[in-house]
Amino acid sequence: MTLVDINSLEPLADPLEQAKRAAAYMAVDQNVPKDAKFVGIGSGSTVVYAAERIGQLPNKDQFICIPTSFQSKQLIFDNDLKFGTIDQYLNVDITFDGADEVDSRLNCIKGGGACLFQEKLVASCSKKLVIIADYRKKSPRYLAENWRKGIPIEVVPIAWIKVKNDLINFGARSVQLRQGGTQKAGPVVTDNGNFIMDADFGVIDGDIKVLNDKIRGLVGVVETGLFVDMVEKAYFGNKDGSVTILFGENVEETI
């Protein structure tokens, strides 16, 4: 099987989708090890293109793909990839995932799609975590400069009121229990049967690790959407068709 040249593909009608595809394809082409045995498939709109590209790899039958959500499980099947679960295979070579925002040091806010626990679980078992996104997700410097919806936090349903009060007591400006929207009465329920809360702490210009550990320490919290010191590099698709690769500490390259 010959890998499709991205430059030969028909441009997508939506420039934003074109940017996502460019970032995803480049990230996959540059980072999947030739001898990979296990590849993590993240969640979100940009990961759709990563799974598509992984499905075009000539060695795709040589590795097993590990999902981080129901969505990514379907992406694995849709692209004719081998499927496995994280409780079967703990040593993942590389994971590709999206993000709601990435700061200049490669810390991330994730969980806008309510998949943060399984995303962090697979990432924690991975030798490398590569983020793919479009230019809107690249923060000028700090987290929550662009993403203003708050830090996603997965909580046990019975504990959500207690956790909300705890978060407000140590500085959250507001805390919202995420609702399901027009097609679901009541709150969002995660793949794990939990609720999602969004806590707004404003721009996070302090020690992110301290904040993350403090939230995680609350009884009732399953996991936070703060990914601290977990990402190796991030790929951002730009409006002009180029891709910016961020290596951390404001070290980047645009191709």
Rank of each mutant, 00 (worst) to 15 (best):
V156M: 14
N192K: 09
L218H: 03
I151F: 03
D213I: 01
L211C: 12
N169E: 12
A185L: 13
L177D: 02
T224N: 12
T224C: 10
P152V: 11
G150Y: 02
P187C: 14
N146S: 06
V156W: 03
I215K: 00
E154L: 12
Q183V: 12
K164D: 02
G202R: 04
V188I: 14
I196V: 15
I161M: 12
A185K: 15
D229F: 09
M230G: 10
D229C: 09
R178C: 06
A172T: 07
G171F: 02
V210R: 07
V155L: 02
L226N: 04
G186A: 05
A185M: 14
I161V: 13
E154K: 09
V189P: 00
D207R: 08
P152T: 11
G193F: 03
P187H: 13
P140H: 13
W147K: 12
D229W: 09
K184L: 13
N165K: 14
L143K: 03
V222D: 01
D213S: 07
L226H: 01
K162R: 14
L218V: 15
D205R: 12
K149C: 10
L167P: 01
F170V: 13
V210H: 06
V175P: 08
T190H: 11
E154N: 11
L177A: 06
G206N: 12
R141Q: 15
I196H: 03
V188N: 04
G217Q: 01
G220N: 05
V175Y: 04
V222T: 04
G171L: 02
G202E: 05
N165Q: 10
Q179P: 03
I204F: 01
L226P: 02
P140S: 14
A144S: 15
I151T: 15
D213Q: 09
N169I: 10
I151P: 03
M197F: 00
L167E: 02
I208C: 09
G193A: 10
P152L: 05
D198V: 06
V188L: 07
I208R: 00
T224H: 08
V210T: 07
I151N: 07
S174C: 06
L167N: 03
K184P: 10
P152S: 12
F201H: 03
V219Q: 05
I151S: 04
I215F: 02
I215V: 15
P157S: 06
M197K: 00
F201L: 04
G193L: 01
V222Y: 01
S139M: 10
L218M: 12
G180P: 06
A144D: 09
V188K: 07
E154H: 11
G186I: 02
I208Q: 02
V221E: 01
W147H: 14
A144K: 10
F170S: 13
I161W: 01
P152M: 11
L167W: 00
Q176E: 15
D198C: 09
A172E: 04
L211Q: 10
I215E: 00
R148V: 15
Q176H: 15
W147Y: 15
D229H: 11
F227P: 11
F195I: 09
T224M: 08
M230F: 06
G202F: 00
T190A: 11
V228E: 05
P152I: 10
K149A: 13
R178E: 12
